[in-house]
Computed example of a mutant assay.
Amino acid sequence: MLDDIVTLAVSVNWINPASKEYEQTSFELTRASAQALRDFAPDPPSTQADSPSPSTQ
């Protein structure tokens, strides 16, 4: 899977505040699968609870 290419098809919809009408745009993002995993499902941020406690002497 590390050498595969993945494509994410994206569609964004919103209401234009000036015209009060719905607008839409679509595009595709293409990435190497390893990069896509980091982009779209990143590791959660580490917390102090995850960090090893400093050693005491």
Rank of each mutant, 00 (worst) to 15 (best):
S11T: 15
A34P: 01
T7L: 03
L37F: 05
S55H: 09
K20Y: 04
L29A: 13
Q24L: 02
S55F: 09
F40W: 15
P42I: 01
S26N: 14
S53N: 09
S46D: 04
A34K: 10
D39Y: 09
S51C: 07
N13M: 08
D50Q: 03
S53Q: 13
A9K: 12
P42H: 00
E23K: 13
D3R: 10
R31Q: 15
P45V: 05
Q57M: 08
P17W: 00
D43Y: 05
S55N: 12
D43K: 07
W14D: 00
Y22L: 08
A32N: 14
R31L: 15
S26W: 01
P17L: 01
R31I: 01
T56R: 10
L29C: 12
A34N: 08
K20C: 07
V12D: 09
T25G: 06
P42Y: 01
M1K: 03
P45F: 06
W14P: 03
S51K: 10
S33C: 08
F40I: 09
N13Q: 10
L2A: 09
P54R: 06
A49I: 06
D3K: 05
N13D: 14
E23N: 09
E28N: 13
A41D: 07
E28Q: 15
S11F: 06
T7N: 05
Q35N: 08
D4P: 00
Q48D: 14
A41S: 10
I5K: 14
S46Y: 07
A32I: 07
D4M: 05
Q57I: 06
E21P: 00
S53L: 13
S53D: 05
Q48E: 14
S19F: 02
T25A: 14
E23I: 03
P54Y: 04
Q57A: 09
P45S: 04
S19R: 05
S53C: 02
P45W: 01
Q48N: 13
S33W: 00
D3G: 10
S51A: 15
E28V: 11
D39F: 14
N16H: 09
D50L: 03
Y22S: 07
F27P: 02
P54I: 06
P54C: 04
R38T: 12
S46A: 12
P45Y: 02
L37K: 06
Q35C: 04
N16Y: 02
T56E: 08
N13C: 05
K20D: 11
E21G: 06
T47D: 01
K20E: 13
P44Y: 01
L37E: 05
A34Q: 09
W14G: 08
T7K: 15
L29E: 07
Q57F: 11
M1R: 03
E21C: 04
F27W: 15
T47L: 06
T56L: 13
Q24V: 05
Q24T: 13
S11P: 00
D50T: 01
A49D: 14
D4I: 00
V12K: 11
S55C: 06
S55Q: 12
P52Y: 03
F27T: 07
